[in-house]
Nucleic acid binder design. Structure first.
Lengths: 167, 167
DNA sequence: TGATATTATTTCAATGTCAAAACAATTAAC
DNA sequence: GTTAATTGTTTTGACATTGAAATAATATCA
């Protein structure tokens, strides 16, 4: 394990922590994916259905920002869900650029059936940590995540970034 | 934020922690990716080059397991790196099923130039946490990761898993 | 109002990704 | 020593993903 790299101690610690975080997240994701896939849903599809179940109809833009995916990607994912009759598209009448996506009865039936299983799987995974450890992990992740405040895939680069680029 | 889902308190805590972990990891990854991409490398390509730089020539299988990617995937990634002249393939003489991948001079030049930048970017991101917090985050991630001991994408399902499935 | 900018979605090309099947080479069992 | 099982890679088909360009609709403001 460990990155055979000799930088400063700060760099070593950060790299080491980064690897642990990434591996934990990715391997966890991989295990959960494999379960979701059993129901014929990809992670993104699952994410869309779950959002719609818990938040009601949403525009594609909102879904994309929620799942940290590009608008182009969301179009494709919704395409595939629509083909299988799990969601419906409705052009907004107020702002005809927007498209509202909502669950069909079949979609709702499916996600309602699958979600509790998913929740249980996650609970299972996290039972490796005590409740206090989970809270601490959550706190640290949040602190780390907020630091950079991810602009999201679509977001155009701002002045500061463009400037940094042109150096 | 938060998953509007009423399960048990255990489920709520686990789901909440899961979301924070995932978002932290994904948004961090997204920010780092954007930098790596500037050099015309994808994350996977970067991962391969970095492994080769720090560990020397490796077989595709080893690379795949290290990066938690399937063998089919690694084939494609190496294909693309090879096309660009950054790595070389050499069939092993000892076991002719294996393919050793190594850096070409161009590949080595590139990764040597880029890696320190990457390390600095990561260090920068993690400076949001104190050293102690970083160590604690690492510990929790490791504990969590070990729990499931990810089988990796390719790994065939073993007896225990097949049994669990058929329940 | 009319030109211009912004916003939401779609399309496209390139790459990544997995699972499963096909192949090829090696090892184990008989 | 053949046959059978295993192992490492490639291929294939389906979906995901991004960034950039194209479209279309709305908002701004001179």
């Amino acid at each position: 394990m460990g990155t055979r790299y000799d930088g400063t101690p700060e760099e070593k610690l950060a790299l080491d922590t980064y690897i642990k975080l990434t591996r934990a997240s990715e391997s966890l994701e991989a295990r959960l994916d494999r379960r979701a896939t059993k129901h014929g849903l990809t992670v993104s599809q699952f994410g869309v259905l779950e959002s719609l179940l818990h938040l009601g109809p949403l525009t594609q833009g909102v879904i994309g920002r929620k799942l940290l995916k590009s608008s182009g990607n969301i179009t494709v994912v919704i395409d595939n869900l629509e083909k299988r009759g799990l969601v419906r598209r409705d052009r907004s009448t107020e702002d005809r650029r927007q498209v509202f996506v909502s669950l069909t009865p079949e979609g709702e039936e499916l996600i309602r059936r699958i979600f509790p299983e998913h929740a249980r799987a996650i609970t299972d995974e996290f039972s490796a940590l005590t409740p206090d450890e989970q809270r601490e992990l959550g706190r640290l992740c949040k602190k780390l995540g907020l630091a950079g405040d991810s602009p999201g895939p679509d977001a155009p680069q701002n002045r500061a970034q463009r400037q940094a680029e042109s150096r």
